[in-house]
Amino acid sequence: MERLWKLTEETGKHVLLIGLGLLTMIPIIWMISISLRSEQYVFSGHLVWTGPLHWENYVKALTEVPFFRWLGNSLRIGVIQTLGQVFIGVCAAFAFAYYRFPGRDILFLFVLMTMMIPMQVTLVPTYLIVNQLDALNTLTGVIVPHLASGFAIFLLRQSFISIPRELAEAAAIDGAGAFRLLWTVYIRMSGTILWTLGVIAFLSNFNEFNWPLLVLTDPELMPLPLAFQYFRTETQMDWGATMAIATLSMVPVLILYLVAQRYIVDGFAQSGLKG
């Protein structure tokens, strides 16, 4: 009897979760469904499209606009910015976690504060600085101002302080210098969190909209989130092609997410946010 009850309960939960899952997926289904319709049927009001599939929207998205160039820009921004953020984050987190020095806690508080302040607060002056560095309309101008990431420093520091100090001290007594310490103890023991940070930072850099919007004018330099609205003019919007490009822009994100899902989940569990 009890087993039956448990089975019913489990089934009920699955039904509920499947329902909610489908509800959550509606925008994604809708996006794909519109991307396969001809112009007349964009507004047919159906979620799922059962008519003839219009792959020409994808042909348009891949041939009429420089899709692969945009994808390349996004990947470039994503990879370089992420590597930079992780590198700078590891260095700073190591300093915060291993050393004791005057002003450390205040500095760390400062790092936390940089996370809290919306980027828009410093938007105008940052723009002017980037201009003075002659980096407007370059990928450098997109990447460099956000290389120091409060999130990266915070996450890594949380992970580093959870590493037993004795390990580091033992290594120091054995004569390990600062770099060896950082490498052999802290980095080696933070594999998961580094991957987690890498994946999360990459996704957010890859998807960033606001700052590139301001810095870049040249369509050839734009990342996908900026460029994919290319099929929109003053009075016209080609929804089919726009949704085709939207779907295509999701593909790299989806692949990475599928591959790295484990790191996102494990990383959250290890990031010092335990209950």
Binding site: I88, F94, A95, F101, L107, V111, T122, L147, A178
Partner: peptide
């Protein structure tokens, strides 16, 4: 113990100085 942490913090601090503190005060 004073210099090494500074050494490791410099990239971050430099970037923060140019792209956060200065713009912030400028704002």
């Amino acid at each position: 113990m004073l210099l090494l942490p500074l050494f490791f913090l410099i990239p971050a601090l430099l970037l923060y100085a140019v792209f956060f503190v200065y713009p912030f005060l400028f704002t």
